[in-house]
């Protein structure tokens, strides 16, 4: 009886042939822009819009793109900025999330409300004021300048608070009896329990900041600090007169590290976004 009813519940997950075809067509449409970029980048320009499977492959666009823009520098900047932001977020959000989850103090509700405000009012919205703050600190056009507004993340604090709140109090008590101080308890009991959440948060944060554009555009002036996204916008601007296949090659250079990471860790990526969404 049990087996039979389980089988029946699976019936609701069956879809018709027409839907399967539609699902495949939609999937093709969704991946098509990326496939096209690869096509254009690896073929000479006369094949850009004429699709001949036997057309000869070429690397010339990649060589031209690499020579026309300082991609290596942009990539270094993106790595550094993403890294600085992630490292600070992990530390700051762990400390704050722990205090909110396990420390009793007056005004917790107010603090929580103040934190949650950042979910609505993201740094992107306050570019005008934040630019002036950064100018006052003389941090325009630096890695730190790009990173500062994102170092405390409401999302991270909330995610870790929820996770720390589920750690059994008995583990906490046991560590204290053994003589651990507050930070040792946090480091030895809570942090290891939250490992999957840290991974999830890290992947979401990395893909967000790898792709972030508006704030880095405002706060960077030279290639010394420009991340890939800002570099791409300059490289691909119609005024720069760069040809399509070369822009496609540049685009692929810019997205390849993240795309490769995504393809390798596909499962973790999808699960991270899911985990981050459920909270």
């Amino acid at each position: 009886m049990m087996a039979r009813s389980l089988l029946r519940t699976d019936d609701f997950r069956q879809i018709s042939m027409a839907e399967k075809v539609a699902a495949w067509i939609l999937g093709f449409l969704w991946i098509m822009p990326l496939l096209f970029a690869f096509w254009a980048a690896f073929h000479s320009s006369e094949y850009t819009t004429s699709f001949d499977l036997l057309a000869p492959l070429t690397f010339e666009h990649f060589i031209t793109a690499w020579d026309q823009a300082p991609f290596a520098r942009y990539m270094l900047n993106t790595f550094a900025i993403t890294g600085i932001i992630l490292a600070s977020q992990l530390v700051l959000c762990t400390l704050a999330g722990f205090a909110l989850a396990r420390m009793p103090f007056r005004g917790k509700g107010v603090v929580m409300a103040l934190v949650m405000m950042q979910l609505m009012v993201m740094p992107e919205v306050l570019i005008v004021e934040n630019y002036q703050t950064l100018a006052g600190l003389e941090l325009i056009d630096s890695w730190t300048g790009v990173g500062l507004p994102y170092m405390a993340s409401a999302f991270g604090i909330f995610l870790l608070r929820q996770t720390f709140a589920t750690v059994p109090q008995a583990l906490d008590d046991a560590a204290r009896i053994e003589g651990c101080n507050l930070l040792q308890v946090l480091w030895k009991v809570y942090v290891p329990q939250a490992k999957p959440v840290y991974l999830a948060y890290a992947l979401v944060s990395i893909s967000y900041h790898w792709n972030n554009f508006l704030w880095p555009l405002v706060v960077t002036n030279t290639e010394a600090s420009r991340p890939l996204t800002v570099g791409m916008a300059i490289f691909g601007a119609p005024e720069s007169g760069v040809e399509w296949p070369i822009i496609c090659a540049g685009t692929i250079i810019a997205i390849s590290p993240l795309l490769a990471a995504f393809l390798i860790f596909q499962k973790q990526f999808v699960q991270s976004f899911m985990r981050a969404g459920i909270k």
Binding site: W30, L34, F213, L228, T229, M232, I247, C248, T251, L259
Partner: peptide, 13 residues
Amino acid sequence: TPTVLPMIAVANI
């Protein structure tokens, strides 16, 4: 896949 790609890069395409 579109989710993990930068808006700027895909806008170029």
